[in-house]
Simulated scan of single mutants.
Amino acid sequence: MFDFITKRSFGINLLAVIAMFFALALLFFSLLGVITKHGQQLTVPDVRGKNVKEAISLLENAGFEADVRDSIYIDSIPPLAVYAQTPDKGAQVKVGRTIYLTVNKTVAPMVKMPDLEGLTFRSAEMMLKSLRLNVGDTIYKPDFATNTVLQQLFGGKKIKPGTLVAEGSNITLILSSGTGSVENPVPNFVGLTYAEAREMLSASNLNPGTVIIDPNVTDTANAYIIKQVPARKNEIGDFNMVRAGESVDFWLSANKPVTDSTATQPAKQE
């Protein structure tokens, strides 16, 4: 059967093999454009914001493959909506190219609330963003440390570090605006309960300073202020002045002091 090959000289067979090799190479390179779809390019459509099923169907009908590569939670777009795509819309790519999609989660993951108090606003904002939390309202309150976080609130209430909150939640920050420039007379807190004094401090944009509690006190909120620093008046009877954001120190006792409206300090306890 193979006599026609074996009876031919080696040189002729070698030439035949070389000719066949070049013929196959020519055929391969001529078909390479068809195999690789060379020159066949399509424009990637914009599927962001669309439901993932609709986006995949649209891409496949346009001649692409689609694959969900990642997921994220964004509260401003519907669940299972496409948040991002790669390659981006308008890109010119080959037919059959895989378009990778990032899809919005249906349920927000929970993260631990960080401790922001004492941080600058910029640092607090960066920390919230790293946890995919948002800065909600910013409320300024007079205090010494300008533009630092005094309190963190969620849903109008103070939230403790470590509390689980949903990604995308808005965190309200109470920030320091620095001390005020206008001086006002120090309020008289002597004779008030500590709870009443705290309310007056808040109304005067002042802060509680050091609180010294008598050993006989069992209920701090209802204990009485028997001394304050700075006092209402100084030694010569003039009013002491204080600026918004400054603090007042208190001494607390279980017994209500006997006060004299003309005195600069409360009467001593017997």
Rank of each mutant, 00 (worst) to 15 (best):
M113S: 10
A81D: 04
L80F: 09
R132T: 11
E125V: 01
E117R: 15
I74T: 13
L101P: 07
L59A: 06
I99Q: 08
E117W: 00
R69V: 07
V107N: 12
D115G: 10
P87T: 03
G96Q: 08
P79T: 06
A108K: 07
A62F: 01
S57D: 12
A62N: 12
D88A: 15
F121L: 12
S76P: 01
L131E: 06
I72W: 07
Y73I: 03
M126F: 03
A62T: 12
F121R: 15
T102W: 09
A124G: 06
M127L: 13
D70R: 13
E65W: 02
A84W: 07
P78T: 09
K89P: 01
S57R: 10
Q92H: 09
A66R: 04
G118C: 02
D88K: 14
M126E: 15
G63H: 04
M127K: 15
P87E: 05
P114L: 02
M113W: 01
S71Y: 06
K89F: 08
Q85V: 06
L80R: 15
E60F: 00
Y73K: 08
I74Y: 09
Q92A: 10
A91S: 14
T98S: 10
Y83M: 01
K105S: 06
A84N: 14
E60Y: 03
R69T: 09
V68N: 06
R122A: 13
S123G: 01
E125D: 12
Y83S: 12
K105L: 14
D115W: 01
V95W: 06
D115E: 14
V107E: 15
E65G: 11
A81Q: 09
L59G: 10
V93S: 02
T120H: 07
I99K: 07
A62W: 01
F121K: 15
A81P: 05
G96H: 09
R132V: 02
I74R: 15
M126C: 00
K89L: 01
L116P: 10
K94P: 04
G118W: 02
G118S: 04
G118R: 02
